[in-house]
Write a protein that binds this DNA or RNA. Structure first.
Lengths: 185, 185
DNA sequence: GCGAGTTGAGACATTCATGTCTCACGTGAG
DNA sequence: CTCACGTGAGACATGAATGTCTCAACTCGC
């Protein structure tokens, strides 16, 4: 009954609550026997690797969909601004599903996921660098730091929603505005 | 030879590298036998609880040292600004030692640590609220969100230094400036 | 030098997650 | 109906981490 994708989705959902959940718990969460779970994923690492891959897929799709490369190449301030808005919205949507991937330590232990993650981060650096060159973002700080700041705000956003301090519908504008304008009045 | 504090310090250092390190590994890292480690800390939870407590101690000390409450009560914009600068520097110093506590999931599973953490967060909310009232920080977003943003930037800072993207000596100014002014030019 | 106290090494039992395997059951296609 | 297939439940072996215990060695104060 439960397809592989449904199992993955359930595991994802549950790992967002408890990142240390055991295979038995994840199987139960998917409404599936432990044996069945192992039929789909030989090992726990397999499962995490698949989830990690999917989260990177989403990240990559977001960059593609926002045409980060093309926008960066254009150097057009307006387009860059729109692209950043778009990207934040996409990231925040993804973090609903893959939030646990933001801080889970498994990802950093899988070399192939790490190198791929580094490549994607590099694409982001390109965009932010272009944004600096176009005068959209300040250029007195490194673009690499700005990518870290983006990441940090995503973690903050996830936490804020989890604790009920921010309504999901306000989140996009809140995070973007905080990133761009900061907290000063 | 190794005092309890030295063991704690070593464990802290090592958990910053590998948050899942076993008791055996932590004992070795402290240059101490596994039995000795257990003499000081009955269980792994004990050890983590102690480290969690210490990280909250540091947080509290930072708030005290910066006189967050007094400054908030004063409502003086200049003092509030100075206090924020001071606080960020203290937090960043602490995150060198207790960085792992930022994202480790153990802390959220210890109820007493959580309630204490909530109380400290509340003190921070008071300060940021006062900052908003004094016109230091924007008041079109909730002060609670601002505390999350502070937290997120600390995570980002830790990550940036770990990956060598930011020099430690630049960090204080960088983080504060990003928090206050954002990334926009 | 001696004795009390502490330590490290290691043996041990226990618990828990993991991964494999078997088997009975149910369902759907033929 | 029946047979093939996927599934769930559960047994099983394994490995890792944990916590306890003992003992020999070492150190420090006397």
């Amino acid at each position: 009954m439960a397809t592989r994708d449904e199992i993955l989705a359930a595991a994802q959902r549950h790992l967002n609550i408890d990142p240390r959940a055991s295979m038995a718990v994840l199987a139960a969460a998917a409404g599936v026997g432990r044996a069945t779970l192992h039929r789909h994923f030989a090992s726990r690492d397999d499962l995490l690797h698949e989830l990690g891959t999917r989260s990177l897929d989403r990240w990559e799709q977001s960059l593609d969909a926002a045409d980060a490369r093309g926008v960066a190449a254009s150097g057009d301030a307006g387009r860059i601004r729109a692209c950043l808005t778009d990207l934040f919205a996409r990231y925040l949507a993804d973090s609903d599903d893959f939030g646990f991937a933001l801080t889970d330590s498994y990802l950093t232990s899988a070399p192939d996921l790490m190198t791929r993650s580094d490549r994607l981060a590099e694409r982001e650096v390109e965009l932010l660098s272009a944004a600096q060159a176009a005068g959209v973002l300040r250029d007195d700080v490194s673009s690499r730091w700005l990518t870290h700041a983006v990441y940090g705000l995503l973690v903050a956003a996830r936490e804020a929603v989890r604790e009920g301090d921010v309504a999901r519908r306000d989140l996009d504008a809140l995070v973007l505005s905080t990133f761009l304008k900061g907290a000063s009045s």
